[in-house]
Nucleic acid binder design. Structure first.
Lengths: 122, 122
DNA sequence: CAGGATCCGCTTTGATACTG
DNA sequence: CAGTATCAAAGCGGATCCTG
């Protein structure tokens, strides 16, 4: 077995749809991916700055999973103040059409008022 | 408020990506959608026959959520043996490119051995 | 036939504190 | 800076039984 799927799949016709969702369907993976498409390369705390509501624990977990799934590359610099860079892997980059489709649909069909702003509801 | 989002969103740049995933990201919604793209119209037990591992509870829940999200239409016939038909709504149909992108990517990039067959692993 | 109602457990997500 | 460890809450998914 190469990738022990995180959630059980039972191959109905649309199986690969679920499989793909399993890879990017976390609560944050989509955003992480999206940011990497935009920024090319990001460090741990750069993610945190851009995603204030995302805890370290979650960020680490998501990053680790995506790395394990071969979607992103993690480059560690052996320095005194640690430095780790994240960027899309070749495989990760193939997801661009998918993420773009997701975003395009969302932009066009999601009512803006269902997108709760982080700290602007008063 | 039109759609009280099922999971909290905190609008980072790629927010709508997550929002879209929130609509189709359940464990079964992708398949349900996919089946409706194929079959056009399906009844409750027809879903169940095609998705043996999906419980009524889950099926009902998924169907209800997708209905609440305006993705599918639910047509009830007031008959003695109840009859309910499900089909994609106009809004639901707009998801086709998304689902197809998801499936296309999965078909091309998901290693087949990570797609556990329902009852064929021996 | 098409659900509704309950009960239960796992997984995900989150808040906090600590470390090399 | 870039995590790890622990603890607790919530949500998701499931099994079973019941009903109009």
């Amino acid at each position: 077995m190469s990738r022990p799927p995180r959630h059980r799949l039972d191959c109905a016709p649309g199986c690969t749809v679920e499989a793909t969702l399993g890879l990017i369907g976390g609560k944050w993976k989509g955003v992480v991916l999206y940011l990497l498409f935009e920024e090319e390369v990001l460090r741990f705390n750069e993610f945190r700055r851009r995603l204030p509501n995302l805890t370290q624990r979650m960020l680490t977990a998501q990053l680790r999973e995506m790395e394990a799934d071969g979607l992103i590359d993690r480059q560690v610099y052996a320095q005194v103040p640690p430095k780790v860079e994240y960027r899309l892997s070749a495989r990760g980059r193939t997801l661009e059409p998918v993420v773009r489709a997701l975003k395009a649909w969302g932009d066009a069909h999601i009512p803006p008022d269902s997108l709760a702003p982080p700290a602007a509801a008063a």
